[in-house]
Design a protein around this nucleic acid. Structure first.
Lengths: 206, 206
DNA sequence: GCCGTTTTCTAGCGGCGCTAGTTATTGAAG
DNA sequence: CTTCAATAACTAGCGCCGCTAGAAAACGGC
């Protein structure tokens, strides 16, 4: 392999990343509906078919953006979760970081969790960063609780619901702090409570 | 106004509904991405421009479908919530009905809560059925609790998160029963648990 | 039976994702 | 230094999209 070939491959890799970044920036600036192959090509200063020499199609570009996002989210959540033994605080920190991430980069979040995708979740071929991100939630719960994954799922669902609903204008975003606080309080609460002794098998059984 | 004019208006109203129903059925059968104005026109056996004499555009048709859905959801939730004083059971019933609704008619649900919309939520001009539906959640909580709306918001968010994530293949749908049970248990739990009577202002103020 | 209004249709615009076929570029052999 | 096969990039175009202008048809009132 000649030295020039090497250079070409390097340039090609750079352009690959350039496309991803351009798509992401364009989406963040004007929304995903503005990200067309024509506009994207114009932005990277190449013709349209060049995109198809790097990706299988528009969906693949979107997927690449999403995967990039998974890594960044995982980093962020890991940094947020302090090595505190107190579960409530750790969970609050992780959930807060999640909401921040979604609020700061709504288009990226959409690519990851809203737009149709064929990225496998909870599967064998799930992107490792995605698993890592989810595990940050799991790690906030008691390691001895066999239901900690379930707790993580419900927590994540609630957060995603908040993000999705506020992002599409279905709930006002200013109540997020209160919702976050309430969510964490309730998810870490012990059922039964002082005032409501609903027998032993509280809740309709799992 | 002549009698024939009346007939024409009646027929026109029927066609209006026909378009909405056709859009809904087509979406439910093949997904919203398959609902194009051309296919829709073909289905109602009129030419494409006729759609635009009934609606301002494709978005308006979608909005009409969503509003129809709000009414049906409100009915469903109202029927589900029994006149039980026990909050946990009522909430479980309403949440269960919500998830059923979403699972049975995923495309309708998407039109209501996922696809971009300009329907006003939590506003003055919010469609009444939508308010009604949301109030079914609110009514599950203690009328004396000033935070019952907040509780309803968080509950709804969590449900929506479950629906959205499972609908797009991001969490497996078979865990829904467990997630529902856990959500209701936690949301109706008293924070602090049996051992921690949390004084008056539990949680970081609202 | 005619005419103005209203309704409906045909045809087409610009833009979409994507691709076939052609041109330009380039590294290496003669 | 020239020539040539291979590679890279482009132009042009396909079928589809949402939407609309202008023609054609249907129809009520006289």
């Amino acid at each position: 392999m000649s030295v020039t070939t090497k250079r070409r491959e390097r340039e090609r890799a750079q352009r690959h990343q350039l496309i991803i970044t351009a798509a992401r920036e364009l989406a963040e600036a004007e929304g995903w509906e503005a990200v067309t192959t024509r506009r994207l090509a114009e932005r990277v200063e190449y013709s349209q078919p060049v995109l198809y020499s790097h990706f299988d199609g528009k969906d693949a570009i979107l997927r690449a953006v999403a995967i990039e996002g998974f890594g960044e989210l995982a980093d962020r959540l890991r940094r947020a979760r302090p090595a505190t033994p107190e579960p409530s605080r750790a969970l609050h920190a992780v959930c807060g970081a999640y909401l921040e991430f979604a609020a700061e980069q709504p288009a990226l979040y959409q690519a990851m969790f809203v737009l149709p995708t064929d990225v496998k979740f909870g599967h064998a071929e799930t992107p490792p960063p995605l698993r890592t991100a989810f595990n940050e939630f799991v790690s906030c719960f008691d390691p001895d609780d066999p239901r900690r994954e379930l707790f993580a799922e419900v927590t994540w669902s609630a957060l995603h619901g908040m993000v999705a609903l506020s992002d599409s204008g279905r709930i006002p975003p200013n109540g997020h702090t209160e919702r976050l606080d309430l969510l964490v309080t309730q998810i870490t609460a012990t059922p039964g409570g002082p005032a409501t002794p609903q027998g032993g098998g509280e809740g309709p059984r799992t």
